[in-house]
């Protein structure tokens, strides 16, 4: 379910770097290979259930392979930015945070894929940190970036840029304060899904809780911003973003109830 987030980020980065996406074809092939590999790696969640050695090795190698297409995507995004002409509106900020933090989640994923080490990581907070890095600053930041990116097209109004940036920085700080310490308590040996824990884990847990509340309440800023943008705001142009390309930017803002009743011609 992270794939559409890859798609969103691949729309946003070229727009704000004012430069075409680097390696379009390899992006498509990388996405397809991730999809294919995801069918044959499922047992990486069960390295400790007592699989035969051969099965364990197979799933370890297959899981490690996923790092290659994922890496290709990250390299392509970075190359798209390289020698571009960048501006940093809120969707771009979320997309950049996605690239950095998702990559960190990818690194911990690579560490988890190494079966012998996974015996120490499995079912600890290290895993919790990993998949929250993939799902929150990964999938969720991708979605939020997409919402900011297309919001002017949907509502016909620009959102308040400073409020958007405030939302971004609060979320960014909150996410990292919440989930980064979980790597440490996981490695130090705290299992997941326990309601109470031994005393040596106390400090990092307290930090994570503070971060979680910051992150949680900063989403109320988002709610306020959404409602405000729907009700009014600076009128958006059809193009919305200077560097945006694609059919969705050829229709008026806000998008009329029916669009493309006559199919457009793509050259």
């Amino acid at each position: 379910m992270i794939l559409p987030a890859f798609g969103i980020v691949s729309q946003i980065i070229p727009t704000f770097a004012r430069k075409p996406l680097f390696g379009y074809a390899s992006m498509v092939y990388a996405t397809s290979s991730i999809a294919f590999l995801s069918f044959i790696v499922w047992a990486h969640h069960m390295f400790t259930v007592g699989l035969p050695l051969q099965a364990e090795l197979f799933f370890m190698y297959a899981t490690m392979l996923i790092a290659i297409p994922t890496g290709v995507k990250v390299f392509n995004w970075v190359s798209t930015m390289f020698r571009g002409s960048m501006t940093f509106e809120t969707p771009m900020l979320f997309a950049l945070a996605f690239v950095v933090l998702f990559t960190i989640g990818g690194f911990s994923g690579l560490m988890l894929s190494i079966a012998p080490a996974d015996f120490q990581y499995h079912d600890t907070y290290f895993v919790v940190a990993h998949f929250h890095y993939v799902l929150v600053p990964g999938a969720l930041f991708g979605i939020i970036a997409g919402v900011y990116y297309w919001l002017p097209k949907w509502t016909g109004h620009y959102y308040n840029e400073s409020l958007g940036k405030f939302h971004f920085w609060m979320s960014f700080i909150g996410v990292n304060v919440t989930f980064f310490p979980m790597h440490f308590i996981g490695l130090a040996g705290m299992p997941r899904r326990i309601p109470d824990y031994a005393l040596q884990f106390a400090d990092f847990n307290a930090i994570a809780t503070v971060g979680a509340f910051v992150f949680g309440f900063s989403q109320l800023i988002f709610l306020y911003l959404l409602i405000k943008t729907i009700r009014g705001g600076e009128k958006a142009t059809d193009q919305v973003w200077e560097g945006a390309e694609g059919l969705e930017w050829t229709i008026p803002s806000p998008a009329p109830y029916h669009t493309f009743a006559e199919p457009p011609h793509v050259k």
């Binding site: 794939l3 890859f6 729309q11 379009y24």
Partner: peptide, 26 residues
């Protein structure tokens, strides 16, 4: 798809969803 919108011209968001949709069905 509109005339001229070949598969390899589709925006990446469409591509990634296309692949995800097959995964979901499976």
């Amino acid at each position: 798809r509109a005339p001229g919108m070949t598969l390899m011209k589709m925006p990446l968001f469409v591509w990634t969803w296309f692949i995800t949709a097959y995964l979901l069905v499976a």
